[in-house]
Every structure is written in C-alpha cells, then in structure tokens.
C-alpha cells in the first residue's frame, strides 16, 4: 500500500494530477470497514487529506455557509449558528452512526463516497448546496443535485478533489428531515427524506430522497405536485409522483414496497397542514 500524506491542498492536487488512481481519504469511516478482510484493497494507493488544515473550516459569509471538505458531522453540531440557520444539517448529523462516527466522518467524504444511502447528502441537497471541485488546473462549482451521474458515479474527475461545500443563506419557512433506519442509532438509512420550502420563491419546494434510487436524488415530480394545487388527501396520492422520481429496490435492508409506502406516508404526514394542498 502506498499512502501520500500532503500538507496543503496544492500538494494534494499535484499528487492527484500525477496519479489518477489515488483514492482520496478523509475520515476513513467507509474505507476501513472490514479492512482486514479486504486485502486486495491494501494494494492500492491512497491520498490522505486528513491534515489539510485549510479544509477544516466552517465559514459564514453574508449570503452563504461554506463547509471545508474536512468538516465533520460533529463540527457542524458544535456550530452555534448551524442549528438556527440550517437545522436539518444538525438533525442529520445527529443521526449519522453514533458519536464515534460523527467525530470522524466528513460531509465531503459522504458526498464523494457516493452511497445512495448517504446520510449527509439529502439535507445538503435540500439546502441547494454546491460542491467546489479543485484541481491543479483550477476550481469549478457544481450544484450538488447535478453531482451524481449514476450509482457511485459522479462528475468529479480523478484529478479533482472536493474542497468545499457551499449553501446559500436563505429564508426557509418549512424544513423537515426523516431518516428511517432499522434502529435509532448506528443505522444505515432505509429511506431518507429532506424537504425545504423557501420563503417567497417562485419554485419554493425542494424534496430530496435517499436509499430509493441509485443516487441520493432530488424529486422534481413530487416538487411539482406540491406546487400544483391538486389536492392530496392520503399518502397514496403521492404514489404516481414517487414512481416518477425514484426506483426503490429490495435489498438486504428493506423492500421496494416498504420504501415506496413509507416515503408516501412521511411526505403526507410531514406536509399535512404545511402544504395547502395536503389535507
């Protein structure tokens, strides 16, 4: 195993440019699962980002919040403004694994790992986050809902690293996050849902679901349904929009049917009385 241990982002980008097979490593909470059994992965090359101090910053600007790529769940839970401005970040952070994972796992690592069950990604997406990808040749910003191109696939090139995550500071008059796992802590998401409604916007709803498609996914059909005035009187009234947006499967953790049904119920009960057409 080769491991490169840069001290600056520039060094890290140089290394990435030279060696496209480098696997970036932040909190390592995904990589090291059952590590002794995964001997073939011991032969790969890794890029340890954990000491890039410049990436471990939470920056509040006048119109945005920027999380450096090494920001952990615990860091956000300790930030006094996060709870009032971006409450869903705290709600999701609190439900990631348990404190031992919250202290090491990073938001950017959660994005980069690309699991459809990623706990941190739905709320970031619901807050309209964008990701800065930095390489030797510069930086570009990608809206998070356009980041994934398929199951564990993304627009990130091998010479790029996620350097920051930025969310616009906006007024939301409604937001909700649900994580449905097999237990209250230390659970992998069976169905996740994050919904925000931006105050005084033309298209106010953002609905994001996870563990119901190949990627964490924004749900345009559900968003449109909420925006339209068509009445929703029961959970099943979400069914066709859900079918248009997501493709849940049966797997080791749950069933497609459960995922669809519960997503509808969570939408219905969360929005009942909030969205005027849901009663």
């Amino acid at each position: 195993m080769n491991v490169f241990m840069p001290n600056t982002l520039a060094e890290a980008c140089d290394l990435c440019a030279k060696q496209p097979d480098l696997i970036p490593l932040a909190g390592a909470t995904d990589l090291l699962v059952h590590w002794p059994l995964r001997q073939s992965e011991h032969d790969k090359s890794y890029l340890d980002l954990s000491k890039l101090r410049e990436l471990r910053k939470i920056t509040w600007a006048a119109d945005s919040l920027t999380l450096g790529a090494l920001t952990t769940y615990w860091d956000v839970l300790q930030d006094s403004r996060a709870k009032s401005e971006f409450p869903l970040l705290c709600e999701s952070a609190r439900q990631v694994g348990a404190i031992q994972i919250q202290s090491r796992g990073t938001w950017a690592g959660n994005i980069a790992n690309g699991s459809p069950a990623a706990d941190g990604v739905p709320v970031l997406m619901a807050y309209d986050a964008s990701v800065t990808l930095t390489s030797k040749s510069g930086a570009r910003s990608v809206p998070l809902h356009e980041y994934y191109t398929g199951y564990r696939k993304s627009v990130r090139r091998t010479d790029e690293l996620i350097s920051t995550i930025t969310m616009p500071l906006r007024k939301y008059d409604f937001s909700v996050f649900h994580k449905v796992g097999a237990r209250r802590a230390q659970a992998i998401t069976k169905i996740g849902l994050a919904v925000t409604r931006e105050a005084s916007a033309a298209a106010p709803w953002r609905v994001v679901a996870n563990s119901v498609a190949a990627t964490v996914k924004r749900c345009p059909a559900i968003e449109q349904l909420l925006q339209s005035a068509s009445p929703i009187r029961k959970p099943d009234d979400f069914s066709s929009a859900i079918a248009a947006d997501v493709t849940p499967i049966d797997d080791i953790r749950s069933t497609a049917d459960y995922r669809r049904t519960v997503l509808a119920r969570l939408l219905y009960h969360s929005l009942n009385g909030v969205c005027p057409s849901v009663t």
């Binding site: 491991v3 241990m5 490593l25 390592a28 909470t29 990589l31 090291l32 699962v33 059952h34 590590w35 002794p36 059994l37 890794y46 340890d48 954990s50 000491k51 615990w74 694994g97 348990a98 404190i99 031992q100 994972i101 202290s103 090491r104 230390q186």
Partner: peptide
C-alpha cells in the same frame, strides 16, 4: 471491525472514535 460495536472506542483529539476505522497514519 466495522465501526458498529464501539468496543474499540478511543479518544482522538478529545473526541470518541472507533480505532478499527482509523488508519494509524492518520493519528500523526
């Protein structure tokens, strides 16, 4: 060995963490 049980919990820079999920080079 998968970060679920916490039997390997240690404190790193004043926060609990699972020692089974940490490459040793990261604690430099």
């Amino acid at each position: 060995g998968e970060g679920e049980c916490g039997a390997c919990t240690v404190i790193i820079d004043d926060l609990p963490a699972n020692a089974c999920l940490i490459p040793t080079f990261q604690v430099r």
